[in-house]
Write a protein that binds this DNA or RNA. Structure first.
Lengths: 327, 327
DNA sequence: CTGAAAGCGCTTACAG
DNA sequence: CTGAAAGCGCTTACAG
């Protein structure tokens, strides 16, 4: 049941059917009606695969999203998907576990399927992938991340500054023994570590490696990291946790250790996911403009796909969201 | 840069290139090597759009997922996507806001794009959509939901029984004034309401409409519903909340009202999302085998797409997960 | 084992 | 305003 059958039944050419289907050219009312009637009657559904082939565009975007900080990424994804969809694009999702090889696999997948553009939310440290990315002419936007050395447009906050500000916020509250829980080896995490160090150093406070614990941005890893920190016996009056999801685990660990947030220890998160406002205590956090990141990165991708150029870096501003978890 | 160019460059026919690309037939070693070398050299990427057209299958599945109970649906989605992807399928995601029309729009979209199958996680009450669904021969699995009157294979729990068991659990703890927060108008919610009623009735307890408040399965709606319940001044010793996400909002509302969970009021959630275990207090809940739902529904879809038949109903079992939110 | 050719279901210059 | 025909980039009987 293709356009040909519809054409035959309506007594017109396939060109005419195509035209009424797409509104690409004027078709006289009576022919249009006949065609529409046949389409209705036969329950004809246009084949966008065939159309994509001749048009050389699929109206589909690829989204590469890591399987961590789900709540945070999910929110960017939702917003971006909405924008893209309103613009007539479908979305193909690739959720990536954190292995170097996999991003490449997904990239190949998306390329083979001729997506019109890609929203990349997952950093990779595999230089081979970079090569491929540089070569391919496909529009790509980095959302929320930075890949140093890859000249692709980015929409994100200034992670160094945000972390610096977060640390200063805790210092301003009189905290002097600030633990840090995060994940290293990615530009985002590493920048945040630097911001933390800088703020400490400015405050003439020593940087104590024992106060730095790594997690993988899951709730459970936050809990484990905090347990480690507590067991270390280090003096601690606050912990800066580089994702709200980990912070949830951190607060649980504090509770299970018989301590109280914020009485015994203040907790400052990072990201600003919705659920933070509903926790007990509510989570203070360095809040990213998550929806704005989703929106702007999707719009940038839309521009790129239209052949327009976009600024290489869109820096959005973070805020400190207060909450009961610090005092 | 198509298969034709590669063929010319390697001095073979397009058929041969296609064969080495897909391994569909034996090709002599030397030809294979030549072809592979050219592919490598030219950075050729196969065009799956063209391939889909001739094969009449896209190796793509559609996922229709509601924009509520994100944490719950997200978990089904993750699992299902992993299974599907391992089987070589791509996933096209459609997130649906709760309007009657929209499911139809997405269904059309997926049909136009010739996905090989659909995982439907969103109920609709629009009978027109049902008609279309019945007519289309495309494999569809309902994951976590029931659409009465639509003979499509389902993978889910027994919501009536689960709600009944949850209510009995609270009754067993000595609760006699059990509020209920949920969303009605969908088979899942309505069944849970029935289970609650049945358990009360068995316990010779009156059903009090004033204790029933509706929410839309978002955190915020849970909070609002609980505020309403508290303001109503009704006697209340427990609240059964029909989604963990709403329960998070509920616990917040209790806290803000100056009351304590579980001392003043016990809270029992529904779903069993991961984060519930990390809340303070940890959330007791009627736990669905979420990953199992994702896994089994994806596998069922895989079977359907292979032309095999699947059982009309796969009923998975729920459990009561204990937590500090009840006493 | 390999190739020439038809065909998948559309869109769109090009004529009329 | 409408139609005949070429072509998008593949796969796969069908011959050889």
């Amino acid at each position: 049941m293709g356009i040909r059958e519809i054409a035959k039944e309506a007594g017109v050419s396939v060109a005419t059917v195509s035209r009424v289907l797409n509104g690409t050219k004027f078709v006289s009312e009576d022919l249009k009606e006949k065609v529409l009637a046949c389409i209705q009657k036969e329950g004809y559904v246009a084949n966008h695969v065939a159309r994509s082939m001749v048009l050389k565009k699929t109206l589909t975007c690829g989204l590469i999203i890591p399987e961590v900080s789900e709540l945070y990424h999910q929110m960017i994804f939702s917003t971006a998907e909405r924008i893209l969809e309103n613009a007539g694009y479908k979305v193909m999702v690739c959720r990536v576990k954190d292995t170097l090889a996999s991003v490449r696999v997904y990239l190949d997948l998306l390329l083979e399927n001729r997506v019109d553009g890609i929203l990349l939310m997952h950093e990779t440290s595999n230089p081979k992938v970079y090569e491929q990315l540089k070569k391919s002419q496909i529009p790509i936007i980095l959302a929320g991340i930075d890949i140093p050395g890859l000249p692709l447009p980015q929409v994100r906050i200034d992670d160094y500054q945000a972390s610096y500000d977060g640390t200063r916020y805790l210092l301003g509250l009189g905290k002097r023994h600030i633990g840090l829980i995060g994940g290293w080896g990615y530009s985002v995490g590493d920048k945040r570590l630097e911001g933390y160090k800088e703020a400490l150093s400015e405050a003439q406070l020593p940087f104590k490696p024992a106060l730095i614990v790594s997690g993988d941005y899951t709730v459970e890893s936050g809990k484990l990291a905090m347990q480690k920190l507590i067991e270390s016996g280090e003096n601690l009056d606050a912990v800066f946790v580089l994702s709200d999801e980990m912070a949830i685990g951190v607060m649980r660990a504090v509770k299970e250790a018989g301590l109280s947030v914020p009485h015994d220890i203040s907790i400052l998160g990072f990201d600003g996911i919705t659920v933070g406002k509903y926790l007990n205590p509510t989570l203070a956090t360095v809040s990213q403009p998550i929806e704005e990141i989703g929106l702007q990165s999707a719009e940038a991708l839309l521009h790129l796909m239209k052949g327009e150029s976009v600024r290489p870096l869109t820096l959005l501003s973070h805020t400190i969201r207060e909450g009961e978890s610090v005092q």
